[in-house]
Each structure stands twice: as structure tokens, then as C-alpha cells.
Amino acid sequence: MKKIDLGLKAGTDPKQITDRLQYAPEVFEFYTAETDFTKDGLKRLAEAIEQVKDAGISQIILHHPMRYHGDFTELLTLEQKMPELYRFIEQSTLDLLQLAYDKELQVLVHGSYSRQTALFLAQFDSLEKATAYSFKRLDHFHELGKEHIMFENSISPIFYYGESALDEQILAHDYRLAFDTSHCFIKWQGSEPKLLEALTRLRSKIVHYHLVDSLGEVHDSLELGKGKIDWNAVLPLLNEQATNIFEIVLQDQTDAKEQVASYEYLKQIEQNSKL
């Protein structure tokens, strides 16, 4: 059974970093934003990474920014339609990968987002063509990042987990995968069997988990134990070699108590399973 990591998430705000480091996490995920990709922003990010490494944390993930000028950084973006957004996605990923190669880190990129997907899908003649283009972009970044990049599942019609044919297609591309439990659960409207099937089918290629609870209806990012996911069933299916964080919505971004409570909840289940 996988040993559960105390994995915490923060931005580059010094108050957030100080808060997370007090718990001595084993895994630290930086949630980057558009402002981190100016010259000064990249310098601050590099300094924040060194601060976390100096605290003895070697397992660090850099989460690609979600938005640029209000638009989601959707890999479906066509250069000829939205050139500025396309260039930002490209350059910001390259910037993160440079840090990853230099400092032995990992970069996480979303295969898709759900909130603006319809806008991007409208630029393609069919879902099949959009999916093919999505894989083309994923292949591009996979080749650039190699062992330093992973791709996270969405709840959109693009790059989601739990449908056997798409899962097998993803496996055929040999991507390193990040698995968000809530995204898969929500995609299948709270279907526990679908979540467990996806965890099992993709397990060998999963290198990182976002352990998040949900009611299975909308994107709610709940503390573990406050949603409908059966963590007793999930825990034995996790890849023992993968890292994890608890990507929970916080009441206060400078206080990770909901993330820590989720860790403690899952550790209790882990302990009970050994009795």
C-alpha cells in the first residue's frame, strides 16, 4: 500500500510558503500564476523553490498557471486564433521546464480545463479533431519535458480519465500522469466504480495524485471525508511510487489547515487498514 505523503500546495506568496513549511511536508506543489512569468516573477519563483529545498524538501512540483489575461491556458488553443495565449502557454511551460531540469523538479500541465472548453472546441470541426490536436500538443510537451513533466486529467470532453478507450489511448502515448480524484469522480457524476476503474487501469503511469474529495456534481475540491469518495476503496489502488498533495479549497490561503486535516484523515484510514 502506498505511504501517504504530507503534500501541501501554495503560491509564491511568502506567507503561504512559511505556513506550509511549518508542517514539514514531504511534497510541495507550487501553484503558479501569470505574474510568476515576468523576469522578476521567475526570479521570485526560483528563490521560493530554493527556500523550500533548503527546508529539506526534494519532491517539488510546479503547477502550470491556469489563466492568462482571464482565459484558461487550454492546450486546445490554436496559434492562428489566439496567438498571444498560445505563446504564453508555450513560453511558460518552457520556463517551468527550464527550472525543472536545472533544479531536478517536476512540472504539472493540465490536459484540459472545463470552464472554457466549449469556446475552444468551437474552433474545431469535431470533437475527434479537437482530441487529435490535444494529443499533438501533449506529445510536444511530453517530448520536451521527458521525465520532468506530467499531465493532469480534466472534467471536460478532452483528456479525462475513466473511459476505457480514451484511457488506453492515453497509456499508448506513454505519458506520465497526474490523477486528480475529484476530477474523475465529478466527470462521472459521482460514480465510484468509474473512479476505481480509472485508478486501476492507469495506475502504472500515475506519478502524482491530487487527493481531493467531492460530492461528484460540480468542482468543489472538498476536504477528505466531507465528500462522497470512499477513501477505504481508493487507498489500496494508489501507485506506491507516486507522490501526492491534498488540493483542497482553503478558507484562508495563508492557513493550510484543510490540507493538513485531509492528510490526517487519510493517515487514520491507513492505520485502521493495518489493524
Rank of each mutant, 00 (worst) to 15 (best):
S262D: 06
I60R: 11
H140N: 05
L202Y: 01
L85Y: 12
P236M: 00
T12G: 08
E240S: 13
A33L: 14
Q91P: 11
G11T: 12
H210L: 00
R67D: 09
T32R: 00
Q169E: 02
I60M: 07
N244F: 02
V249F: 14
T73Y: 02
R137P: 03
E270C: 06
F28K: 00
Q253E: 14
D71Y: 15
T117R: 12
E26C: 14
S262K: 04
E79G: 02
K228H: 11
P65W: 04
L238Q: 00
R67P: 03
G145A: 04
L99W: 09
L166E: 08
A118L: 10
P65N: 03
Y133P: 09
S58C: 14
L99A: 03
G227P: 07
T200H: 09
V249P: 11
S58V: 14
D252V: 13
E104C: 15
D220I: 05
L96C: 04
L75T: 02
T254H: 11
E50S: 14
D255F: 12
H69R: 14
H208P: 07
Q169Y: 03
V260P: 05
R137L: 09
K226N: 13
V212C: 01
Y175A: 10
Y263C: 06
H69W: 02
K194H: 12
K274T: 15
L144R: 05
L119P: 01
L62Y: 03
F88E: 04
P65I: 05
I17C: 11
H173I: 01
I61T: 10
T18V: 09
D125M: 10
L196Y: 01
F28N: 06
H173C: 01
I4P: 06
H173T: 01
Q22L: 12
T38I: 15
Q251I: 04
L266G: 09
Y263T: 06
A46P: 09
I206K: 08
S221D: 13
H63Q: 15
V212A: 03
H140P: 05
A172S: 08
L97S: 03
Y161S: 06
L127G: 06
K228T: 08
E223W: 07
I57T: 05
L171D: 06
T181C: 04
K274A: 15
A165R: 13
L177N: 00
Q59Y: 12
G7L: 11
L108A: 04
R87Y: 14
I89H: 06
I61R: 00
V52R: 10
G70N: 11
I158N: 08
T93E: 04
A10H: 02
G11H: 07
Q253D: 13
Y175K: 02
L108P: 01
A132I: 03
